[in-house]
Design a binder for these strands. Structure first.
Length: 285
DNA sequence: AACGCGCCCTGTCCGC
DNA sequence: TGCGGACAGGGCGCGT
């Protein structure tokens, strides 16, 4: 569910409230969200008495840096939310999977209706290997189009699928993949290796623009996403193609089409995003 | 090795 | 009103 902008918004909302606070324990309601070696008992005992030094984001994961070199990673899956206990109550959330208790702050609740989310706890040794599995952040200024092009050239998968693979780039999900491809005028089904260097540069630029605009809007709210205070994001109304099948393209008026790639929807304007490459219009975009 | 598919789970919506 | 099917912002494990 939450993609990079939503996870960023959640982390920013949690930080002022829980950074610097000391954990008292964790109450696990659904143990199936705990990643492998973790058990309810182990999670609670390893967190008890530990201070949360920083709350941030790593890809689509909320990252808690905890004293003693511990890192807790929470992936929110499709319907995961992390909110204060008061916000959870106020919003009527009914699917707590883990409740984190603090000695010097109220509870923090991980709520996840579908339970596709995951909680991982890493020491420095296990974190090294885990972090290597998570690709570069598209907003990292050190990432340049040349490097991304070198990566796309090695893959035959449709570019929409390529964007969703968190080992390549981390943070992009289905909404912003469709939005960025539309803005860059690239058909979602194009094989990654067929993109020119210029197209990859366009794509990276538009991806960054759409992610940043969504962060500025405090994310996208479809129906079940909330930030730390239980508030909602504004980006949903600004999307150009996602879930707008049959509505006119904002750029050219052609009806937006929905296609399915690997069992997941992609949305495109068939006029702005031709399947076969066409001469690009000067000054366009 | 890289890719696509089924599946995990709960809820909503739509057509009949 | 009920029921079945499609679909949902993600990602893992599997077979090919």
């Amino acid at each position: 569910m939450p993609e990079l902008p939503e996870v960023e918004t959640i982390a920013r909302g949690l930080a002022p409230r829980f950074e610097g606070r000391t954990l008292a324990g964790a109450r696990v309601v659904h143990a199936d969200v705990l990643a492998d070696p973790l058990t309810p008992r182990r999670l609670a005992s390893r967190l008890k008495g530990r201070r949360v030094e920083r709350i941030g984001r790593h890809g689509k994961n909320v990252l808690f840096e905890i004293d003693g070199g511990l890192r807790m990673l929470i992936n929110l899956g499709m319907t995961g939310r992390i909110v204060s206990a008061e916000a959870a109550r106020a919003a009527g959330l009914r699917h707590t999977v883990v409740a984190f208790a603090f000695e010097d702050a109220g509870d923090m609740v991980f709520d996840d209706m579908r339970r596709f989310g995951r909680v991982e706890l890493h020491d420095p040794a296990s974190w090294r290997g885990r972090a290597a599995e998570i690709g570069p952040d598209p907003l990292d200024p050190a990432l340049d189009a040349l490097r991304v092009h070198a990566m796309t050239r090695r893959s035959i998968t449709p570019i929409r699928n390529w964007l969703l693979d968190q080992r390549r780039l981390s943070g992009v999900g289905n909404i912003y993949a469709s939005e960025a491809l539309h803005r860059a005028r690239i058909h979602p089904a194009r094989r990654a290796r067929t993109l020119t260097r210029a197209e990859v540069a366009d794509l990276l630029r538009e991806l960054r623009a759409v992610l940043q605009a969504a962060i500025d809007a405090r994310g996208t709210t479809m129906s079940d996403y909330l930030d730390a205070e239980g508030g909602s994001g504004d980006y949903w109304s600004r999307r150009l193609v996602y879930a707008r099948e049959d509505e006119p393209c904002g750029r050219c008026g052609t009806p937006i089409r929905r296609i399915v790639l690997s069992n997941r929807s992609a949305y495109l304007c068939p006029a702005c995003q031709p399947r076969s490459r066409r001469r690009r219009v000067a000054g366009g975009g």
